[in-house]
Amino acid sequence: MFKTWQSKSVYPYRLLLISLGFCLLLCGQARAASCNDPWPAWNNFKKTFIADDGRVIDHSGARKPTTSEGQAYALFFALTANDRPAFQRILTWTENNLAAGDLTARLPAWQWGQREDNSWGIIDKNPASDADLWIAYALGLAGEQWKEPRFSALSSLLAQRIMNEETADLPGLGQTLLPGPSGFNLPGNQWKLNASYLPLPLLRWFERKESDDRWKRMLNSATRLIAGSAPKGYVADWIIYDSQKGFQPDTQGAEKGQGGYNAIRTYLWAGMMADKDSEKANLLKQLRPMANLVDSKGYPPEYINILTGEINGPGSSGFSAATLPFLQALGMQKTLVQQQLRLQAQPIKPDAYYDQVLSLFALGWQDKRFRFDAQGDADFYWQHFCWRLF
């Protein structure tokens, strides 16, 4: 009697356990698939631009150069794709070839490639601070997401070196990011600066993670620098800061005071900021004239005079991609669709390195593969699937 009651009573629970086990198996398979959800654009970028050893190659240059910027962006994209093997290869190549094998001891050189004598190696040893920020940021996020203490430690060491070697306390402006350790301090108390080197989410992240209060001061100067670089709402590629006169167009530089290939990133960074970021609304308001120009012309310009608004031809499709988060943030839906159609009608060339980078950032953000929060953290799509059952 007891045995009969036991078998009948336990049977439903056995079915429940079997069903639960089957469900867990499926969930485990779903988790594995979601954690490695393919990002076609990243996979195409890897095939086209990243060598097996982790070197990012810019095919537009005759000598097939590699820059610290390219390595930095690729690290962030690899993290966005949850592609740890690629991340490690890119980092290893960067450390071995741009930092003489030790990123704890030095910042990476800006450019590597084929020299005039046909040998291969560093072409320009002066580091680029925007690349250094992205490398340190990607390492810090990777250390947190992948539970890798070495990445976190390396991020902090690079952040300290950036602050000590690539910033200066400028009179009337405060702690400011210089484009590199040397070559940007001009005679007569002038400095050559670049607004596109200052994605505000990254600065917010370092301000929160690092104990050095100079990060907070640099965040304050960054907002002034971006505004000073766009007196009419059009960002300059390079701007001169004069301790007496303030911000002045860099008329002696190669871009003759215009905004083009550097400046396009400033609109991109602004568009990708978190809605709750305290600076976003003001920054969008300052830069809205560029959005209005894109609306009226049907394309972002390749170059624009930052004082007169005079343009010099249409920008590439990559420029259109870069404006998408910017236009979306401004709620300019008609203009957003216009630029999306331009991208469809004139696709980005597969081997156009810079355009592909702009596209990966912009479309990756639009597809919600990553988003920045108000504190500068990046929220990756795969984090929401890679949960642990136990």
Rank of each mutant, 00 (worst) to 15 (best):
Arg106Met: 03
Glu69Met: 04
Lys46Glu: 07
Ala74Val: 03
Val56Glu: 14
Asn118Ile: 01
Gly61Ala: 13
Leu107Met: 06
Pro65Gly: 06
Phe77Glu: 07
Arg31Cys: 10
Ile122Thr: 05
Ala72Asp: 09
Trp120Pro: 05
Trp110Ile: 00
Gly28Pro: 03
Lys46Pro: 00
Arg106Gln: 13
Thr80Tyr: 02
Leu107Phe: 00
Arg84Cys: 01
Ser68Trp: 00
Arg106Thr: 09
Arg84Leu: 04
Phe77Pro: 07
Ala86Met: 14
Glu69Tyr: 09
Gln29Pro: 00
Gln111Val: 10
Tyr73Asp: 11
Thr66Leu: 07
Arg63Gln: 11
Leu103His: 02
Asn44Leu: 15
Gln29Ala: 14
Asp117Gln: 02
Gly121Tyr: 10
Trp120Leu: 14
Pro38Arg: 10
Lys64Glu: 06
Arg84Glu: 03
Ala78Phe: 07
Gln88Asn: 14
Ala81Cys: 08
Asn43Lys: 14
Ser34Met: 12
Ala32Tyr: 05
Thr67Asp: 08
Leu91Met: 11
Ala81Tyr: 02
Ala41Tyr: 01
Asn36Ser: 15
Thr80Pro: 04
Ala41Pro: 03
Trp120Asn: 12
Asp58Ser: 10
Leu79Gln: 07
Asp117Trp: 00
Gly54Val: 03
Arg106Ile: 00
Gly101Ala: 11
Ile90Asp: 11
Ala78Ile: 01
Gly28Ala: 13
Ala78Arg: 08
Asp52His: 12
Ala86Cys: 06
Thr94Leu: 14
Asp102Cys: 06
Gly113Leu: 07
Phe77Val: 05
Gly28Trp: 00
Ser119Trp: 00
Arg31Ala: 12
Ala74Trp: 06
Gln114Pro: 01
Cys35Asp: 12
Leu79Ala: 06
Ala105Phe: 00
Arg63Glu: 08
Thr66His: 06
Trp39Asp: 01
Cys27Ala: 15
Thr94Gly: 03
Leu91Tyr: 07
Pro65Trp: 02
Thr66Phe: 12
Cys35Asn: 13
Asp102Tyr: 12
Asp58Phe: 12
Gln88Phe: 08
Pro85Asp: 05
Phe77Arg: 11
Trp110Gln: 01
Phe49Cys: 08
Asn36Gln: 15
Leu75Cys: 10
Arg89Tyr: 15
Trp120Phe: 09
Ala41Thr: 07
Ala62Met: 02
Ala78Leu: 07
Asp37Phe: 15
Asp117Phe: 00
Ala109Trp: 01
Gln71Thr: 02
Ala109Ser: 13
Phe87Ser: 07
Gln111Ile: 12
Leu75Thr: 08
Ala78Asp: 15
Gln29Leu: 15
Gln111His: 02
Thr94Phe: 01
Lys47Arg: 11
Ala41Met: 11
Ile122Glu: 01
Pro40Asp: 10
Glu95His: 06
